[in-house]
Design a binder for these strands. Structure first.
Length: 891
DNA sequence: GGCCTGGAACAACAC
DNA sequence: GCGTGTTGTTCCAGG
């Protein structure tokens, strides 16, 4: 597994109480409901870190950086919900629940630094528990505000004392496990209704999060003088620059002074995150005040006040504009607390002031703050309108990197209209490039089925990854709120754990359906993001994203059911969108091993000389077999190809074998892998998947939508949580076997099983057991879908083993066997044919594997010379090395 | 005048 | 270290 994932396991162990839904029926639901009340149960008895009680995702924050007393450790890690305090901080420590040493990562190093920044970071925790714990027992430590280790992100030496917090990249990963500071965000549900603070106007997308990002981007490149304060006026510039549609790009990385530093564009605006400059702090906001009533918890207030002591976060005296220039990237950090007494009649229960809300609240403030800069058209819909508190009482919601099902019980969150596979994202230095559109015109739409209440809900939207790993917020892309005449959908932005989230109302009157015409995609500079400590992803060629939708449904028992669904992948790169072939649909998903059938591929960028290559991969990603399919050139069009399915190499398979294929327009111009299944010759013909209905007909059923919404591409990363196993049994389509493997992590390593301490999910993710269904696992098929096809024979050297943290699932099977499924373990490592014959591959070798489908295949694995994946890994390694070396130098 | 778009120049990076 | 190809980011121009 990748280091990242390991971290995940580690960090999350979770508390997330999850009961696997039984395979049951469609109704059998994976229920991610959590109740605030449950928090207490997990709260650490000890005050040491009372603030960190709940094993909620916030934990992470506490993790590395938190100076957590051992005693205070809350339970939760190790997979057990209440493992006891002692185990609680294991994660933070360096020991995994299983006793294994925690994976070393830059983040961990950062932690110490965190301590420097107040305990504020724990604030959230406090808040979270507030309703549960008597105030007396609560740590007065307001200090517990969970500060994202923003500052930790950068070398302390580079940070100015005042700016430390702000300086850090606000973009840091939203993923709780990746970043130590993922704030719990305010309940989205509540925010619109209960929290007037959340202003629709809130923020200019770029101002809020992106700005922070931009700020982060101060360092144009990791390679640039590490000692140089990242904060350098970049923040301002980016901030300012972002404002103009065509800024002179002061922030542009290319514009550096001789010393390599970025030239400060705005002298007056302190590049350094001056305490004063932090927008987040602006409690004074009228808006905030007016609406702040929501957060009345005295504890919260105290905590906030404590935070305010943090040097400086006062905005007083600072021109609004000036403040604005300061990135609020790190909202959590510098919050000035409003007097508790500001409660309004509409004030939600203190319990509702959740960690998450805190973020939201910050956001709100920021939004208010930003209002002065960005005027957002008021929508008819009143976000601030008070709603029944009962409509959403959940104190905390699952972190954005948690894998959630798309369906549970009677509810199902479904993407009715998928977005186009291509959408050119815009940079901060550019003007908006509009909202994401649907292939057939119009815009994507999402609908919540099974919800019969009259209370409106909030649909959350953020940009998620589309790689082969678990779905998580994309580090290099953020959702961008689109406003204007052409936008009919009300929305507002929020920043949750450094990830911009668009909140869209789901109204009963609209059948709980939302047309997403207000969501654009913002691209963050790779250099800005990669600089972040703890960031393991690289931006290069990491240009595919997915729209991730979430909805949190209050349950009668006080818990909240969270559903999530992700769209098909969207290519956001201009060049890639123009050049790379893309398969949107395929007329057949399976065929008898004899082949010969015609299959029509629909998509984009097909050429007359395009090739369609069928590939069978070993679990370790190496190609076992590949062959070029015949194309009917006469019928080839830019948007469609007619291919003759080649015979499988083994005509005697006894169970379906999943392989992949891709379209190739030349070197490096290949589509993503598409899944295809070969059926035993004597097997009855199975009706193939309708080409048009990928979503509903996803191989893995509804769950696939939520977790693996990439039917066509068969993204394997997602967790398989099909409420109804049967749903996975799509004729002719193998049920994403990999999922099961991915989903079933070791007890201690539940990748996404987060137990919101306070919010204990009543049900867990889908049973790992889902998925195989007797399907023979294609070699490497699991992760193949996402990976870029590898140019055969590109490079002959032995693949270099990237650091675990950077390994992609498929590439790192050795390091992450748990995700690769049983077969991998059984696969013989060695036999690898050195004869990596480049394509065109020789005729399929027909072998007799009597038990091909069930037993490990003692096949000779052709080592994939230079896979793009490997290249990718090399790139990542290089980045990491550079980062580490620079860190060492600095230190 | 601002938002969208498409295209492309330029620079950094990878090979 | 250099040349070439790729990719990322910014800028321009038109609707």
């Amino acid at each position: 597994m990748t280091g990242l994932e390991q971290d995940q396991e580690f960090d999350f162990d979770f508390l997330f109480e999850f009961n696997q839904s039984d395979e049951g029926t469609a109704a059998a639901p994976e229920h991610y409901s959590y109740a605030p009340s449950s928090i207490s149960s997990v709260l650490p008895p000890g005050p040491a870190h009372p603030s960190l009680p709940a094993p909620c995702h916030d934990l992470q924050t506490s993790g590395p950086g938190m100076p957590a007393p051992a005693a205070s450790q809350p339970p939760g890690y190790g997979g057990a919900v209440d493992t006891g305090p002692s185990s609680y901080f294991l994660s933070s420590g360096h020991i995994r629940p299983n006793g294994a040493p925690a994976l070393e990562s830059p983040r961990i190093e950062i932690t110490s630094y965190l301590g420097m920044h107040h305990s504020n970071s724990q604030f959230f925790h406090d808040v979270e528990v507030e309703d549960v714990l008597p105030s007396s027992k609560r740590p007065s430590s307001t200090a517990t505000l969970n500060l994202p280790n923003l500052e930790a992100y950068r070398d302390p030496s580079c940070l100015s004392p005042a700016s430390s917090l702000s300086s850090r990249s606000c973009n840091s990963e939203a993923s709780s496990y990746e970043s130590n500071f993922s704030y719990p965000y305010a309940s989205p549900q509540t925010s619109p209704w209960q929290s007037p603070c959340v202003s629709p106007k809130t923020t200019d997308p770029e101002e809020a999060f992106p700005r922070g990002l931009g700020a982060c981007g101060l360092l144009s490149s990791p390679r640039h003088s590490p000692s140089t304060s990242p904060r350098t006026s970049i923040t301002e510039e980016s901030w300012l620059g972002a404002r103009t549609s065509r800024p002179s790009s002061p922030c542009n990385k290319r514009k550096y002074g001789l010393n390599g530093r970025q030239l400060s564009c705005s002298p007056h605006h302190s590049p350094t995150p001056s305490p004063h400059s932090s927008p987040r702090v602006s409690i004074t906001d009228d808006t905030w005040l007016g609406n702040s009533t929501q957060y009345t918890s005295s504890a919260i207030v105290a905590a906030i006040n404590a935070l305010t002591t943090d040097n400086s976060l006062e905005l007083d005296g600072v021109p609004v504009k000036a403040r604005k220039t300061a990135p609020d990237h790190c909202p959590s950090v510098a919050l000035k607390v409003e007097p508790a007494g500001e409660d309004l009649g509409t004030t939600p229960p203190t319990a509702e002031f959740l960690p998450e809300e805190f973020t939201s609240f910050q956001h709100i403030r920021k939004g208010a703050f930003c209002d002065q800069y960005l005027s957002v058209p008021q929508h008819p819909y009143q976000w601030a309108r008070p709603r029944s508190p009962t409509s959403f009482a959940s104190p905390s919601l699952p972190a954005l990197d948690w894998q959630l099902p798309s369906r549970s019980g009677p509810y199902e969150l479904r993407i009715e209209v998928q977005p186009k596979p291509h959408h050119r994202a815009h940079y901060e230095t550019e003007g908006s490039r509009g909202a994401v559109k649907a292939s057939a015109g119009g815009h994507p739409s999402v609908q919540l089925h099974g919800y019969l209440e009259n209370e409106p809900l909030t649909l959350q939207l953020f940009i998620g990854t589309a790689d082969d790993r678990l779905l998580r917020p994309h580090a290099f892309y953020q959702v961008h709120r689109i406003t204007g005449k052409t936008v009919s959908t009300t929305s507002h932005e929020a920043i949750l754990s450094n990830t911009k989230v668009l909140e869209i109302p789901l109204l009963p009157e609209n059948n709980m359906r939302a047309i997403v015409d207000c969501a654009g995609i913002l691209k963050l500079r790779n250099s800005d993001i990669e600089l972040r400590k703890g960031e393991t992803d690289i931006g290069r060629k990491n240009t595919r994203v997915r729209l991730v939708f979430r909805v949190h449904i209050p349950q009668p028992n006080g818990r909240t059911l969270s559903l999530q669904v992700a769209s098909n992948p969207i290519e956001c790169s201009q060049r890639s969108a123009q050049e790379l072939p893309l398969v949107e649909k395929q007329s057949a998903a399976s065929c008898p091993v004899l082949g010969g059938k015609k299959m029509v591929l629909s998509g984009h960028n097909f050429l007359q000389d395009s090739k369609v290559i069928f590939v069978e991969k070993a679990p370790d990603g190496h190609h076992i077999w590949e062959t070029e399919a015949k194309l009917d050139r006469d019928l080839c069009k830019p948007n469609s190809l007619v291919v003759e399915i080649p015979p499988f190499r083994n005509q005697r398979i006894t169970s379906p074998v999943q392989v992949s294929f891709y379209v190739c327009n030349g070197k490096r111009k290949r589509s993503q892998y598409q899944h295809f299944t070969y059926l035993p010759a004597n097997a009855p013909t199975i009706k193939t998947e309708p080409t048009d209905d990928y979503e509903p007909a996803l191989p893995c059923g509804p769950a696939s939508q939520g977790l693996s919404p990439l039917p066509k591409s068969c993204y394997s990363q997602q967790l398989a949580m099909p409420p109804d196993p049967g749903s996975c049994l799509v004729p002719g389509f193998p049920p994403c076997p990999q999922r099961s493997t991915v989903v079933s992590p070791p007890p201690s390593a539940g990748p996404k099983m987060h137990d919101l301490s306070s919010t204990t999910y009543s049900k867990g993710m889908a049973s790992p057991g889902h998925g195989h269904l007797g399907l023979q696992r294609p070699a490497g098929g699991l992760l193949a879908a996402q990976e870029t096809p590898t140019p055969a024979g590109v490079h002959a050297g032995p693949p270099q083993q990237p650091p675990p943290a950077l390994l992609r699932p498929q590439s790192c099977s050795p390091t992450r066997p748990s995700e690769m499924g049983p077969q991998q373990h059984r696969l013989p490592k060695a036999p690898r044919s050195e004869s990596a014959a480049p394509r065109p591959v020789p005729p399929p070798e027909v072998r007799e594997d009597s038990n091909h489908s069930l037993a490990p295949i003692p096949v000779t694995v052709k080592r994939e010379p230079q896979e793009l994946d490997q290249l990718y890994l090399d790139d990542v390694n290089e980045i990491i090395r550079n980062d580490l070396s620079s860190t060492n130098i600095r230190s």
